[in-house]
Amino acid sequence: MNKEQNTMIDFAALLEAVLFFKTEPISIKKLAEALEAPEPTVAMGLKELADRLKGRGIVLMEKDNDVMLGTIPEAGGIIEKLKREEITKEIGKAGLETLSIVLYKGPISRSRIDHIRGVNSAFILRNLLVRGLVERVSDPGHARGFLYRATFDLLSYLGILKPEELPEYELIDQGIADFEKCSDEEEGNETTENATTREEV
């Protein structure tokens, strides 16, 4: 194996890590931006990754110009069984927290949910999607982005017609907005302080 092949395999592993972390479709363009690599290089890396995944339980799924990791069709039966088991479990504190954010602030991006919670919410959102409590819709502000919102089934279960009918909706909605504003200001202050420190040094 030559040096070029070895480098491509390393890049393919990096792509696999990013796709595993995302747990949702991402465009080749965004992958290129995130990895600071040319799109042709990303395309070659994805081809290498697809080849490496052959014969395994994970596959590289492609649609239009988006890619994501998925499971092989042969595992469909056991995956559905596991999904049904997940649906019957309690969603837990993290699930309730994430669901509340989606209810009061949705449609909302995953990055904003992560920002409000302070942790990665990818797997929590996946569980909520599986249970039919939230749904993913296209983000009108970003051609290949997604937003999360409560499903009609969830609203029906809660006995409301729209999120605005939730208890203390305006108060909680404003509280979350104030928290985001304060958090953004703190991050801005930290960035300014770090820049000042570097200048002094």
Results as ranks from 00 to 15, higher is better:
Leu46Tyr: 01
Ala195Trp: 05
Asp66Tyr: 11
Glu199Ile: 13
Thr41Glu: 14
Val119Leu: 04
Leu99Cys: 04
Leu35Arg: 02
Gly92Leu: 08
Ala34Gln: 14
Ile91Lys: 12
Val42Gln: 01
Lys63His: 10
Met68Val: 09
Thr7Ser: 15
Leu96Cys: 14
Tyr148Met: 04
Glu190Leu: 12
Met61Phe: 06
Arg117Glu: 09
Lys89Cys: 10
Gly145Tyr: 05
Ala17Thr: 13
Leu46Trp: 01
Thr192Phe: 09
Met8Gln: 12
Asp184Pro: 00
Asp51Met: 05
Ile160Trp: 04
Gln174Ala: 14
Gly159Leu: 09
Leu60Lys: 00
Val59Ile: 11
Glu62Val: 09
Pro73Gly: 05
Glu200Ile: 12
Tyr148Pro: 05
Ile124Thr: 15
Glu170Phe: 07
Thr98Ser: 10
Glu4His: 12
Glu33Leu: 07
Arg84Leu: 15
Lys29Glu: 13
Arg110His: 00
Pro107Cys: 11
Arg136Pro: 09
Ile26Asp: 07
Phe11Thr: 07
Asn127Gly: 15
Met8Asn: 09
Lys93Leu: 15
Glu24Met: 11
Leu103Cys: 04
Phe152Tyr: 12
Thr196Ala: 14
Ser111Leu: 08
Leu103Arg: 00
Leu19Gly: 07
Glu85Ser: 13
Ala177His: 04
Phe21Trp: 10
Glu185Phe: 05
Asn6Gly: 02
Glu199Asn: 01
Arg131Leu: 08
Phe179Ser: 00
Ala37Thr: 11
Leu154Tyr: 04
Glu200Asp: 10
Ser156Trp: 06
Ile26His: 05
Gly145Phe: 10
Ala34Phe: 06
Lys30Trp: 07
Gly141Arg: 11
Gly92Ala: 08
Glu199His: 03
Arg144His: 15
Pro38Asn: 03
Glu85Val: 13
Ile28Phe: 02
Gly141Ser: 11
Ile113Arg: 03
Phe179Trp: 03
Gly132Leu: 06
Leu128Ile: 04
